[in-house]
Simulated scan of single mutants.
Amino acid sequence: MKQAVERRLADVAAFENPRAALEQYATPADIAAQLLHLAGMQGDLSRPVLDLGTGTGMLALAAALYDAPRVVGVDRDAGPLRTARENERRVAPGRGVEWVRGDVASLPVAPPEAVTVVSNPPFGAQQRGADRPFLAAAAEHAAVSYTIHNAGSEDFVEFFAGERGGEVTHAYRLAFPLPNQFDFHDAEAAQVDAELFRIRWPAARDGE
């Protein structure tokens, strides 16, 4: 299943005009397929999936391909959302995705129940703490979240989650490729070490 999803996601177009201030880097198809595979193995795709900072829709479309019961992708930038809609037509998952424009700090959608949040937030290279609003939104709305962060973030993520009653249950190392797409890049391509965290939030216990 994971390899089939990855092949389907290979058709997802990246950002047409990426914005450095928002750290708009496309999530690679293999990482998206792996993240949702892990979520499925943990039974976390039986609830609705909310993709925060969806960009051009990679993680949301992966969730739809894994047949999550409902998938919502949220992004503040209208341009990438247009591309996400085009990507949905290109990938043609069996389940449709709801694309919503809005800021994660004040979500324009109110999930009717605890969801599984997936997100590849900014690492904070342009603005320190840029990933905090994504974790805060997950703490408010999610039973479980899967978020990607810069390597070395484990202590911060564990502290942030613990302050809000959450618990990091799994951590995975990732190699995240960065293409040369901004003026300040001086190499053709680069690779950064990243980490994926699964956090179980209080809403998961409330439903037990």
Rank of each mutant, 00 (worst) to 15 (best):
P122C: 00
P122Y: 04
P122T: 09
P122Q: 09
F123P: 02
F123H: 05
G124L: 05
A125W: 09
A125S: 15
Q126G: 12
Q126Y: 14
Q126S: 13
Q127M: 15
Q127P: 15
R128A: 14
R128W: 11
G129V: 02
G129T: 05
G129R: 00
A130M: 03
D131H: 10
D131V: 04
D131I: 08
D131F: 13
P133Y: 09
F134N: 07
L135C: 12
L135S: 05
L135Q: 08
A136E: 13
A136S: 07
A136H: 03
A136N: 14
A136D: 14
A136I: 02
A137L: 07
A137M: 00
A138R: 05
A138F: 06
A138W: 07
A139T: 01
E140M: 08
E140F: 01
E140D: 11
E140G: 05
H141G: 03
H141W: 10
H141T: 12
A142Q: 09
A142R: 02
A142W: 05
A143N: 06
V144K: 11
V144E: 05
S145V: 03
S145P: 00
S145F: 04
Y146K: 00
Y146V: 08
Y146H: 01
T147C: 12
T147Q: 12
T147D: 12
I148L: 05
H149L: 11
H149M: 02
N150S: 15
N150I: 13
G152C: 04
S153K: 09
S153L: 14
S153D: 10
S153N: 06
S153P: 06
S153C: 09
E154A: 07
E154T: 06
E154M: 12
D155G: 04
D155V: 08
F156N: 02
F156H: 12
F156E: 11
V157T: 06
V157E: 01
V157D: 02
E158F: 14
F160M: 12
A161L: 10
G162L: 03
G162E: 11
G162Y: 00
E163T: 15
E163Y: 08
G165H: 14
G165T: 10
G165K: 03
G165W: 07
G166P: 03
E167L: 12
E167M: 11
E167W: 07
E167T: 05
V168W: 01
V168L: 00
T169S: 01
T169D: 08
H170E: 10
H170Q: 15
